[in-house]
Computed example of a mutant assay.
Amino acid sequence: MKKQTRNILRITIISSIVILVGVTLWFNLTSDIQAIQVGDEAVDFQLETLDGGTVQLSDINEDKGVILNFWGTWCEPCREEMPDMNEVYNEGHDDYELIAVNVSEGEQQINQFLASLDDELSYPIALDRNRDVTKVYQIGPLPTTIAIDKNGVVVDKQEYQLTKDDIHRFVELSTSE
């Protein structure tokens, strides 16, 4: 490749990156939507589940705390935290519900991912096909987990992978009055 062509290509790539970063910053700084923060009222939603049912936050949250775990099949930290979540969930979940919210992937892809896990997950998988819930909760990196107490208030939010201790803390916070 000629030196002049390489320079033009480099300048084009660098210019494109600068423009994309600028547009992203502009949208983030001028957005009227504020991210759901700890202390905010949880936003209600209804999603279809992988098994064909539906899950509505307000129905569950009437008498239970809720833990929302946003994840994707391509996300290695998501894969790594799921067995711990399943183990904690199977210890007992009378006072809370754990909902794994898949972010806009197809059922076949999700089922292939779940089949590759060592154990079958006991908690419901909700399908956020259009990313509506993901947008409302302003979810960035995956996994992101949100704890909602029995009063419908967000009591914790953590981006990235949870440890087993983190999961127990989320359960404790979501079941507190």
Rank of each mutant, 00 (worst) to 15 (best):
M1F: 13
F27I: 05
V43E: 13
E81Q: 11
I60L: 14
Y89C: 07
I33P: 00
E177R: 03
Q108M: 08
D63M: 02
D63C: 01
A126C: 09
I8T: 14
I11S: 09
S176T: 08
D63P: 01
T73N: 08
E87Q: 12
E120W: 05
D156Y: 01
W26A: 12
D84M: 13
Y89L: 09
E62P: 00
F27K: 05
T5N: 06
Q138Y: 14
E76C: 02
F70L: 08
I167C: 04
I110E: 09
P141H: 00
N111V: 11
D94P: 01
I110Y: 11
I17C: 05
N61F: 10
A147K: 00
Y160E: 11
G106Y: 13
T12H: 06
E91W: 02
N7F: 15
P124Y: 11
V154N: 04
L98T: 13
S15L: 11
S58I: 07
E107V: 12
D132K: 05
K164H: 01
Q112N: 03
V21T: 11
T49I: 12
A100E: 13
P77N: 06
E76M: 10
V171I: 14
I110T: 13
D32A: 07
I17A: 10
L173M: 15
Y96P: 00
V154G: 04
M1N: 01
P141Y: 07
R6N: 10
K150V: 04
E91G: 01
A115D: 15
G92S: 07
I139P: 02
R6P: 01
W74F: 15
Q138D: 15
D59M: 04
N130C: 00
L25V: 12
L173Q: 09
L121N: 02
Y89S: 08
W74C: 09
V38N: 01
L98A: 04
T54W: 02
T49G: 08
D118Y: 03
